[in-house]
């Protein structure tokens, strides 16, 4: 897929982003971030090249494009060992689920179960 076929996370075509538009302050880093559809496409490419796990990663990533940087960093922090109780992780998963991030929600639920079994929840 060529650069020109793809729009950024904000829907902007990067072909329209020039040095002049950048200088005018009309471009944000979000304009130059990846669109979830592009990640879905890259997931298909990864699958065709024998790596379904990389594809799954890109599909989780596609869901995360809707989340702000701070929230993504906060979920990462929550998943580190001994940061959350089981119910906190479950609540976080439910919240993600309700916002359409079902694959990430599933990852969090799995983590909660594993952490409970291996003593990695917050004490």
């Amino acid at each position: 897929m060529a650069v020109t076929d793809t729009v950024g996370a904000t829907g902007r075509d990067p072909a329209e982003v020039s040095l002049d538009t950048v200088r005018e302050g009309e471009v944000s880093i979000a304009d130059l971030s990846i669109h979830p559809d592009t990640l879905q496409h890259q997931a298909e490419v990864a699958e065709r090249h024998g790596n379904p796990q990389l594809a799954a990663n890109f599909r989780r990533a596609a869901e995360l494009t809707a989340l702000g940087d701070e929230e993504v960093l906060a979920i990462y922090e929550a998943l580190r060992p001994h940061r959350c109780t089981f119910s906190e992780l479950a609540a976080l998963a439910a919240d993600l689920e309700s916002r359409g991030a079902t694959r990430n929600a599933q990852l969090l639920r799995e983590a909660a179960a594993a952490y409970a079994r291996r003593g990695l929840l917050r004490r």
Binding site: I34, N57, R60, A61, L64, Y76, P81, A111
Partner: peptide
Amino acid sequence: DTPWSKAFLASAYAS
């Protein structure tokens, strides 16, 4: 870290 936090991190970068 845990494998789940690392998996999430991988997706965060890709996102």
